[in-house]
Simulated assay, not measured.
Amino acid sequence: MVGLTAATGTTSAQSITGSVSPTEVQVGETVTGTINYPHPDTIRVEIIWGDGTIDGAGGDSATFTHSYSSPGTYTVVGRALGREIRVEKVLGTVTVTPGRSGDAPGQNRVEVCHRGRTIEVPSTTLDQHLAHGDTEGPCPEE
């Protein structure tokens, strides 16, 4: 069980299951993460994307999407929280590259407001961003 911890000092026979995909993307492209921890005391599950962003939801399973704004290698962690539990597991690693050669900012790219910050994404991924709540154009408070 890679990366499994229990904060209460007790261990559980269950472990977090989940995944992150794709594991290689360009800046602004969408990654999907899933997490499941079917334990009766689970109150909330979270995905820690490795860039300072944490998505969470009530319950014992969830699916989230995320886009990275900077190139790098990010370790994605799933976390389950409850009254007597705190369990974490590495779900995977995502490698983010700058765009393809010739895919410069402003060329075949669009600005979107993603979680309160403006990022440029390939125009081919705009529909995916709009589907998970991003808005086209710069964020209003930037």
Rank of each mutant, 00 (worst) to 15 (best):
A7L: 12
V77M: 08
T5C: 08
T42Y: 08
A80T: 01
H66S: 06
I47D: 04
V27D: 01
G56I: 00
T32V: 13
G9A: 08
T10I: 12
P22Q: 05
S21N: 12
G56W: 10
G28T: 04
I35V: 14
A7N: 11
I16L: 03
P22Y: 03
S19G: 14
T34C: 05
G9Y: 10
G78Y: 01
S12M: 09
V77Q: 09
G50F: 08
A57M: 09
P22K: 06
G56T: 04
V27I: 13
G56S: 13
Q26T: 11
G72P: 02
V27F: 02
G18P: 11
R79C: 06
A80C: 07
T8Y: 07
T65I: 00
I35L: 05
E46V: 00
I54L: 08
Q26S: 13
Y37C: 06
T5H: 11
S70T: 15
S15C: 06
E46M: 06
S21F: 03
H39Q: 13
A80V: 00
D51Y: 01
S21H: 06
P38I: 07
T5V: 14
D55I: 01
R44S: 15
G52I: 05
E29L: 02
H66Q: 06
T10V: 14
V20M: 07
F64Q: 04
T23N: 09
G56H: 11
S70A: 14
T32W: 05
Y68A: 02
G28A: 02
E24V: 13
Y37G: 04
V27S: 00
Y37P: 05
Y37W: 11
A6D: 12
I35P: 01
Q14W: 01
S70V: 09
V76F: 07
D55R: 09
T65D: 12
Q26M: 13
G18R: 08
P38F: 10
Y74F: 15
A80N: 04
Q26P: 00
S70G: 03
G9H: 08
E24F: 11
L4W: 15
T75D: 07
A62C: 12
P38Y: 07
S67H: 07
I16F: 00
I54W: 02
E24L: 13
H66M: 04
L81Y: 08
A62G: 14
G52M: 05
E29A: 02
R44K: 15
P71L: 03
G52L: 06
T73F: 02
Q14Y: 05
T73N: 11
P71V: 06
T30D: 10
V25C: 00
H39S: 11
A13I: 11
